[in-house]
Simulated assay, not measured.
Amino acid sequence: MYQNQEYPFPCLCCHPQSYIRMVQNLIERCLVLGMDRDQCVKALAIHARIRPLVTLTVWRELLKENTGFFQAYFSSISCRGLKQA
């Protein structure tokens, strides 16, 4: 049957670029799922054991590099929240 295998994450100290790239990819997955920043930070802390400070730092850099995308994204998820209320 299915075995739960541990896949090693890159080490922040040994391979910082790989680690940051992994966090970026996980944040992008959270965005696909429609999560806001706090939901993403919490999900990565619980499911990937990534420290919230790391997630927030990578999030902030993504926000700086992709301002237009995030403005549209935040508008989209806020409109979705209004429709559900």
Rank of each mutant, 00 (worst) to 15 (best):
N4P: 00
M1P: 01
H47Q: 15
V54G: 06
L31A: 08
N25C: 09
V41W: 02
R49N: 13
S78I: 04
L31S: 10
Y2E: 07
G81H: 06
A43L: 01
K42I: 02
I50C: 05
Q24L: 03
Y7S: 12
G81D: 09
Q5L: 13
V41N: 02
C13F: 07
I20E: 08
C30T: 11
V54N: 10
F69D: 01
L62K: 12
S78L: 09
Q84C: 14
A45G: 12
Y19L: 00
I77W: 04
E6G: 00
G68V: 05
R49G: 04
I77D: 05
D36V: 03
V41Y: 02
L31R: 12
I27W: 01
C14Y: 11
D36P: 04
L82C: 05
K64Q: 15
F74M: 13
A45V: 00
L12F: 09
E65C: 11
P16D: 11
R37V: 07
A48S: 14
C79L: 14
R60H: 11
M35Q: 14
Q24D: 11
N66M: 01
D36F: 09
M35P: 04
L56D: 04
A45W: 03
C13T: 07
A48R: 13
L56F: 01
C79W: 10
R80P: 00
F74T: 04
C79R: 13
Y73Q: 10
C79Q: 14
V32Q: 14
Q17C: 11
S18I: 00
A45Q: 11
L12G: 03
Q84W: 08
P8N: 14
L31T: 07
C40N: 10
S76C: 12
P52Q: 07
Q17H: 14
